[in-house]
Design a protein around this nucleic acid. Sequence first.
DNA 1: TAGTTGGGTTTTTTT
DNA 2: AACCCAACTA
Length: 772
Amino acid sequence: MGIYDTLNQEQKKAVFTTQGPVLVLAGAGSGKTRALVHRVAYLIAECSVNPWNILAITFTNKAAEEMRERVDGIVGFGAESVWVATFHATCARILRRHAQLIGYDTNFVIYDTDDQKAVMKDICKRLQIDTKVLKERTILSAISAAKEELTTPAEYELGAAGDYMKQRIAAAYREYEAALYKNNAMDFDDLIAKAVELFRSSPETLAAYQNRFRYIMIDEYQDTNTAQFHLVRLLAEKSKNLCVVGDDDQSIYKFRGANIRNILEFEQQYPQAAVIRLEQNYRSSQNILDAANALICNNTARKGKSLWTNKGAGSPIHFWQLDTAYEEANDIVEDIARKKREGRAAYAECAVLFRTNAQARILEEQFILAGIPYLIVGGVNFYARKEIKDLLAYLKTIDNGRDDLAAMRIINVPRRGIGVATIARVQEYALENNISFFDALVRANEIASIGRAVAKIEPFVKMIQVLRSKQAYYSVEELLCDVIEMTGYIRDLEASDEEDAKNRIENIDELLSKAADYGEMAQEPTLSAFLEEVALVADIDNAAADADKVLLMTMHSAKGLEFAHVYLAGMEDGIFPSHMATASDDLTDLEEERRLAYVGITRAKEELTLTCAKQRMVRGETQYNPVSRFVEEIPKELFDRGFFVQKRRKFREYDEEFVSGDNPQSQDAPFQRSGFVRPKAMLSPKKTSLEVKPFIARGIESLNGVSGLSKGMPEAAGVPDYREGDRVRHMKYGEGTVLAIEQKPRDYQVTVAFDGAGQKIMYAAFAKLKKI
DNA sequence: TAGTTGGGTTTTTTT
DNA sequence: AACCCAACTA
C-alpha cells in the first residue's frame, strides 16, 4: 500500500471511501487531483474494480489530459479503459452512438458561438426581430440559460406570458431549435441537454450506461450547471457511487450557468453522503494563503473553510501601482527578466494573469521588446479563425450535407462569382422543397430563377461529390489536402497581398498536422470524430511542457494551475472587479469576482505580485481607475515595506540592456518614476503595435516558436539558395541578414533581420528573397 | 459582383 | 482600438 502512505489523513479518507456518495471539499492546492488519481488506482488495484467501470469527468480539456496522464502513470494495467473526459466530450461520445434515438443522425455537427450567431442572425431576419432592440447575443444567452436549465422552447413560451421581449425570445428559441435540428447540428448546451433527453426517453440506454459507470467522479463540481447536475444524477442513480470534488470558493462560471447550489446542497441531495474536507495546502507560502483567506472571508455564500500550510511565511506580497498600463507591463517583464538573470526563477515558473484577454496585447508587446519567450494561453480560439473555419466547413459539407451553415459559408469561398442574390434563391428553393441547402445546389438546374449562375454552381457541387466519394478510403489529412488543392485555397492566399496571408497559411499547416496527428492517434479515425474533437477543443495546446516560457492567461484559464511566481495585472476597480460587477446591483456578481481573485492569488507558490495602473486605455478611451478593492481586502502587513510601495528601486545595470543610447535620467534617479525611460519612439503605442502585429496575429506562438511540424503537404517550393547568416534583399523591406531557416510542412520559413524594417518571419516561396 | 468606406458598437470570463 | 455591418462605387 506504499503509494497511499504519502497522503494525509483526509486525502486517505477521500481515497478509501469508495462506496456511496462522497463530497470532497478541496481547497486550492490541497492535492485534490492527487487524491482523485489515487482513488482511481485504489479502486482498480485494491477493490478489483474493472477500469472500464470508472468515469471521471472534468471541466476543461487541460484537466482531463492531466488526469489521464496521472492515471496512466499510477495505474499499472488497464488505465486506458478508464473514461476520463470533459462533460461535453462525454456527452458527445454518448450521443455519437445513440443520437438516432432522439431523431438526430449520429454524424451531427457541433456548432460553436460563431455558428450560433449566424443561425440567429438569419432567424432574426425571418422573424423581423430588430436586432438593434433585441440583440442576437441577448437572445442566444437567454436560450443558453434556458438549455442549461433544461427548459424546452414550449416551456419557455409558457413562462413568457405577458412579457413581450420574452415572447420574441421564445419564438426565436423555437426557430433556432428547428434550424439546428434541420441542420443536424447541436450547440454546446445541446450536448448536455440532449444527453439528458436521451437518457430520459430511453431507459434501456440509461441502464446500459448506469451499468457501465459504476464509479463516477466529478472534478470542479462547483462549476456544474443544472443540466449537468441532472446528467450526473441519472448516471449515478443506480450505483450511488458518486464522488464529487470541488471548492465553493473557486466557483467562477456563474455566467456559464454554473449553479453553486449544486455543491452547497449536495448533502441535502444525498443525505447519506460522506463529507471530507481537504484544508491543508501544499502549494503556497503562509503569506499567500493568509491573503487568500482574508480576501475570501468577505464573501457570504460559502461553506467556510480555512487553508493552512506547514510551509513558512515566505516572501511578502508585492504591490505596485504604475502610471500607465505600458509601465505596468514593462515592469512585470523587467522583474521576470531580473529573476531569470539572478537565477531565482525559470521563465516557465512565472505567469502573468489578468481579468480580460484584451490585457494580453500590451503585455505581449513588452515581452517581444524584451526578447523574453512567452506563450499566450487562450484568447482567440484557433479553430475560430476564418481560414480554419472555411476549411472545416468543407469537411463538414463533405461529412454532413445537412449542415446548411457550412455549405453556405463555402459556396463562394474562394470566390466563384456566386452572389447573395443567387444564394437567396437557392435558399428559398431549399425551403420550399424542404431539402438542405446543398441538395438544392445539386438540383440547381431545376431552379428557374437563378439563370446563368447554374454554370458557377455545378463545378462546386461536382467537387464536393468527388471529395465525398474519396471519403471512404482517404484519411482526414488526405481529404484536407485535396480540399486545399482543389479549391486553391492556399494558392489564393499566396497570391493575395493580404498582410497576414502567411500567418493564415501557417495556421492551415497547423490544421494539417493536427489532422495528421489525429489520423495516427485515433483508434478508429472518422471525419465526424475529427470534426467533433476539433469543435470541443478550445485551443491547440502546443505549450510544449519543456519549453521555458512565461505563461500569459486569464485567471479563468489559470484555474487548476500553479506557478512559483505569479503576477496579477490590472488590479483596478473597473477592471478587476470588472465594471459589470461593480455596477451590478446583484451582490453575488461581486462575490464571483472575489472568488476569481481567490483563484488568482492561490495560483502562486512562492511569490505574488499585484500590479495596477493609474491610467489605462480601454476600448479607445482612457480610464482612471482606483486601486482594486480586492487589494485593500488583503491585510497590509502581508505586503513588503508596508502597504502601497508605489515604486521600488530600479535595477540600473539591467536598464542598460533595454535603453538604447544614453539616458542620463536612469543614471542617478533610482526612485524617480521615470527611472526607466525609453526613447519616446519606442514607447509610442502606434509604432510598437505596428512592429508587433505579425506576432500578435499568430497568437499562440512566441518568439522562439515551437517547431517540429513534420508531415503535411508535399514541398511547394525548392530549397532556398541562401543560408543562415547570408545577406538578402527583399522587394519591400530592402536588405537584411538571414537569422534562421526552418522547414515547415509546405515551405521554408525564413527569419530575416532587415536593416531598415526590423525582424520579419516569412515564407521562402513568396518572400522571393534574393541573395546578395 | 466585389471592394471600399464610414458609422456604429462593444459580454469579462469558456465548453 | 478594433470589429462588424450597411451603403456606396468601380
